[in-house]
Nucleic acid binder design. Sequence first.
DNA 1: TTGACTGTGTACCGTACGGTACGGTACAGC
DNA 2: GCTGTACCGTACCGTACGGTACACAGTCAA
Lengths: 241, 241
Amino acid sequence: MNLTTPPENAAGRSPAVDPNAGPARERAGASALGFGSEDDAPEFTERQREVLDAVLKLMVAEGDGFSVAAVAGAASCSKETLYKWFGDRDGLLTATVRWQASKVRMPKLPRERLTREGLEQALRDFAQSWLTVITGDLSIALNRAAVGHAGSGKSRLGEIVLTNGPFAMKRRLEPLFEAGREAGLLAFDEAGDAFRTFFGLVVADAQIRALLGEGYRPDAREIEIIAARAVRQFLSLYGQG
Amino acid sequence: MNLTTPPENAAGRSPAVDPNAGPARERAGASALGFGSEDDAPEFTERQREVLDAVLKLMVAEGDGFSVAAVAGAASCSKETLYKWFGDRDGLLTATVRWQASKVRMPKLPRERLTREGLEQALRDFAQSWLTVITGDLSIALNRAAVGHAGSGKSRLGEIVLTNGPFAMKRRLEPLFEAGREAGLLAFDEAGDAFRTFFGLVVADAQIRALLGEGYRPDAREIEIIAARAVRQFLSLYGQG
DNA sequence: TTGACTGTGTACCGTACGGTACGGTACAGC
DNA sequence: GCTGTACCGTACCGTACGGTACACAGTCAA
């Protein structure tokens, strides 16, 4: 889902902690359930990040099918190092997805002194940035990989992408919806329903079409229009007053 | 997308025509652009259909990763026969997707004497059946395969699924929307926009979550509720009078 | 200088799998 | 009966790739 670096990156972390004391697959990101990525991204050394970025490039170029040898070649490192750092191919893939996820930051959402205009603007920004992300090459490549792996059981890629995609979006939006309701701007019974509607209006068929390889992608201008219409419709359904 | 057999099957076709005069990959389904599946499904012999159904089972069980040997084993046929019939592994996969696509029939939609209740009911039926299909194991397995292949360039699986999925849905719905507009029941500028909204409200995050491997799937009762809400919202946005 | 450590490059192994070849059987037409 | 065709079962081949082993280079500390 959200896997690119649109609005604001969080670069420049200190690579103090060593990223893995064994096969990287054993490392939990941190935070109790399903790793965080909000503030406690998995740490990698500079060199490791270079490697992971090389993997990202390869994935965009040729999907999940890249070989470990190709990664070693592209990143100018030895296969042995890759296996030492990431355990196996799957660990490498997982680390790559986490690394990318840690780079994504969602747009800020206002929580206080909500006005109708403020809410509308926030939703529009959010929708726009979301659409930009999910139609980006990187996000598409990673989602494709995750979808593929979700089929073959093993590897929790799907889970990771889900956590950083729709679930993160939901976690982020629902407080805003609640705030909107308290401010008398929105009316709904279940925040979950409101989220589902918002997601549908914004994303619609864009993501599945992109994943299935349709060539066409909306540009920034179109995304702006789509986002604006989605928000207008959402407010028409759930707006108050 | 649409790839199961929910409302009505079209079984019992005469296997008169021989399905392939060379590698099956060369065969166009028929009908000018992007093969039809409406009435002119690709024909396969009884035995071939058995084989393709075996592939479907395998795909549901283990995704795109099945081996040709496994297919031969499951279908009790020889690998050589498979290669003779379908050319290569990819041809087998493509034939399977086409075969499944040919089995799907969309729910009928009324086109005349549209009443508000008739329109509403038709939309509800359509949404319900659509949700049932896309959350089904078969559809999920095939979509996963198509998404995966869309990444690695070759093989037009994505295209096929797209044609029989969102595009078919759109082709089917837009006339209904137009009819609704002419009957004074709907108001919109672009039928495409209306479709996009309808798609979003109905499908929302259900498909991507299923593709990414989230365990939960809505049951028939929940689907009914979701479909009803989506249609209500759609009519609230585009309804007239 | 020496030695421990980290990483590169490369050669290598095992295996899984796509694709082919071939022997054997059933059956239809002559 | 003979021949051709269609199919099954299985053995086989080539290769690509995941994973491992090892030799060599650079770096840093004592």
